[in-house]
Amino acid sequence: MEVRTIKVFTTVDNINLHTQVVDMSMTYGQQFGPTYLDGADVTKIKPHNSHEGKTFYVLPNDDTLRVEAFEYYHTTDPSFLGRYMSALNHTKKWKYPQVNGLTSIKWADNNCYLATALLTLQQIELKFNPPALQDAYYRARAGEAANFCALILAYCNKTVGELGDVRETMSYLFQHANLDSCKRVLNVVCKTCGQQQTTLKGVEAVMYMGTLSYEQFKKGVQIPCTCGKQATKYLVQQESPFVMMSAPPAQYELKHGTFTCASEYTGNYQCGHYKHITSKETLYCIDGALLTKSSEYKGPITDVFYKENSYTTTIK
């Protein structure tokens, strides 16, 4: 009895394709271990004539594949690729409408935090270190965002349907971005203890939790000093293409032309909904596939993004 075979390709990165001759009487799992086709788990399936010449994702289970996976995804987590594939199996079914010149995501599976993050990423200057993220990001900007969303979920250790947080998501993504040249110098002034300067680099240099107003941050924000008295913390120097200011959701007025974009969060910790506000020729609110415009805006804002380049204080 002759062994019926077909020729397929296996890959971990969709760049390096490895030619395989597979036995049609055995499952993919018996031949390769966990195997995925377009995100779908085909591990328990036997090869079919229609699979001839198709590319299958496999887990990096030998040295060659491990090197290829690390170079593309910059992670050695053995569960990463499987999590990416199972997320992709959902995100490829989502709709990605162009809204006001940006790629958004039609609401499904509690994905409003991903839509808000995706919209924000198209408006701030950011370059990702893992080629996987950078490639998928370019495709997302062009309207094909399924891979990018699935990668975000995998890097953030999230599953489809789980509630997510924009600030946490951005923080994970910033860790995989090139923020080497970003720098922030802060000064804390206390009447009792004097003053202390701190220099922050990388992710810490672009994120701040405690106030939404970048102007206020430049002037000074009140913080408790270690001595128990009130101290003032203010920005001395900022070198970065953008800054992200966050605070627990509270009524906040966004003035046209003073910011790049913002995240609105309605609801409580267990259950809520994100919308995205962007400042173009007027203010726009993007909620999944829905767009509304207004000249002014007041609502429960939790993150505001500002364009920056270089700032030095005039406070002496």
Rank of each mutant, 00 (worst) to 15 (best):
L254P: 04
K298P: 06
R4L: 12
Y84W: 00
Y306P: 02
D23A: 12
L163H: 03
S171D: 12
L114W: 00
F259T: 03
K275V: 10
Y311P: 09
K46E: 13
A142G: 14
F80N: 09
D77T: 04
Y252T: 07
M24P: 14
G272A: 02
T199M: 08
T292A: 08
T120N: 07
P300V: 11
F9S: 12
G53I: 09
T10E: 03
Y137W: 05
A231N: 01
T192Y: 07
L212K: 02
F217L: 15
A40L: 13
K183D: 03
E162T: 05
M209D: 01
P300T: 14
Q222I: 10
K92M: 11
H176G: 02
D63C: 06
P249C: 04
P60H: 03
M244V: 11
P130H: 01
C227G: 00
G202R: 04
G82H: 15
Q122F: 06
P241Q: 08
Y113G: 10
S171H: 15
M24K: 13
S104L: 08
L283C: 06
I315T: 15
H48M: 12
L291P: 04
T312R: 15
H74T: 01
P60T: 05
Y36N: 03
V189D: 14
A205K: 04
L114C: 04
D180L: 06
P60D: 00
Y57V: 11
T278K: 09
A108W: 09
L121I: 13
P131V: 04
A69T: 10
S279C: 13
S171V: 09
E144M: 04
E308S: 07
A117N: 01
T76G: 11
C182P: 01
N100I: 06
C149A: 08
D165F: 09
W94F: 07
T226K: 14
C112V: 03
T35M: 03
G299S: 01
Y306I: 05
R139A: 13
P78M: 08
Y28S: 10
P34K: 11
H273K: 02
V99G: 00
D38K: 09
Y234F: 05
T159A: 13
P224Q: 12
N187E: 07
L59Q: 14
Q123F: 02
K255G: 09
Y73G: 05
M85L: 14
S171G: 11
T266D: 10
C261E: 02
H273R: 04
L88C: 02
A262Q: 05
N110V: 04
N14I: 11
E68W: 10
C182H: 02
K92P: 02
R141G: 08
E2D: 13
G299E: 03
T64F: 09
M1I: 07
N178V: 06
E68V: 03
Y28P: 04
Q222G: 05
T64Q: 10
A154T: 11
T103I: 12
I315S: 15
G288F: 07
A231S: 04
F242E: 06
K255E: 00
V8R: 03
T91Q: 11
G288C: 00
H51M: 08
I301S: 00
K307E: 12
G228V: 01
L173K: 10
C271A: 14
S25I: 15
T11M: 05
E264Q: 02
G53C: 09
K293I: 06
T312W: 03
E168H: 15
Q196E: 13
K158S: 00
T116D: 04
L37D: 14
V21C: 12
K275Y: 00
Y297I: 06
L102A: 01
A262C: 00
P249D: 06
R66C: 09
K201H: 15
F305K: 04
I45D: 14
L65S: 10
K280T: 07
L81E: 07
C149Y: 02
L121P: 07
Y72C: 08
H276F: 15
K191A: 13
M209C: 15
T313E: 06
H74S: 03
A69E: 00
V243L: 05
Y214S: 06
G299P: 01
Q216P: 05
V243T: 00
C285L: 11
T5A: 12
A145E: 02
C193T: 05
L186F: 13
E239V: 12
C193R: 04
N178W: 05
T232G: 04
V236S: 03
T120W: 11
D165Y: 11
M170D: 02
T282Y: 13
K218P: 01
C190E: 09
F32R: 10
L133M: 05
T35G: 12
D62L: 06
R184Y: 02
S310L: 15
K93G: 12
I152A: 05
A250F: 06
Y36G: 04
C190D: 00
I152H: 03
G267E: 15
D180S: 12
N61I: 08
G194V: 03
V42L: 13
G164Y: 02
C190G: 03
G228M: 07
K316A: 15
G202N: 07
L59H: 15
D109S: 03
K183G: 05
T260P: 00
Q20K: 13
A132V: 02
C271E: 08
T169E: 04
R66E: 07
W107G: 02
I45P: 10
